[in-house]
Amino acid sequence: MPALSRPFKNQRYVPYVFVLPFVLSAGLFFVYPVIQTIIMSFQEIAPGLREFVGLDNYRRLANPRFYTALRNSFVYTFLTIAVLIPVPMVLAVLLNSARSGAGRSAFTVLRGMLFLPALMSVVVVGTVFRLMFASSESAIANTVAQLLGFPPTEWLLAGPTTAMVLLVLVATWRWTGINIIYFLAGLQQIPNELYESAELDGANAFQKFRRITVPLLRPVTVFVLTISVFGGFAMFEESFVLWGPTSPGNVGLTMVKYIYQQGFQSAQMGLGSAVGITLLAIVFLVSLALLKLTGFFRQGDE
């Protein structure tokens, strides 16, 4: 046998060799930055200066801007989940019904089209939305508003509610397609026999959806829920491209944008790190609570 196989004769080493790349990259790109961030959150950091200031940075979090960021992030996450789970699920079921028979080619085309937004750069998407909702009377949104008999509006400056609707709209446009793909994959796992026997028992379409589809899609739903929580709390670019680094009335201020504002714009990296660690803790707790609630940790209840 060639020389290379010799180390593998000793089975003890093999698992370590195979996990080494992951351990190294996780250590370098995850563990080290997280530990550094924790340390930095207790420091005052300036060019040529780093000193420990105890809990100062965390104490300074008790300010109106942090609360606004916290509220915006929670509301955004909640709304995106409220939209981006039921809507794609229903659309996936409808789309799935066209999978066989005459609708097959339509199914393929539609699936491709729905996936397209997810592939686009958020900067492009944000810019397009910014232009659509520009203040000028000739912007698309204002043209439509005028056709419907409403006066033109300065959408991006119209206050917190409009701003949140715009942000959720961008998220919906971007992620509906990809969530449909997840649910389509889940639908394939459901055996057709279940629907057939339900039909024999006289169940209607809604009952089949309610009693078979929704419960059996639960693993996919839990997955989509989890990534939506991460995505919701991590939102930054959408708000950044719509308003830039600051937004009037802080309508687009999210947790991550607050990190950016304090860490970079105001060069308070210690405070920025403290926000980051707080965000990490919040996301961790929220995900844990949701997973517990959805029974993810229960064993063998499928």
Partner: peptide
């Protein structure tokens, strides 16, 4: 000695 070759190479 040679069984360490793999380790050393990867590091």
């Amino acid at each position: 000695m040679r069984r360490h070759t793999m380790w050393v190479a990867m590091v």
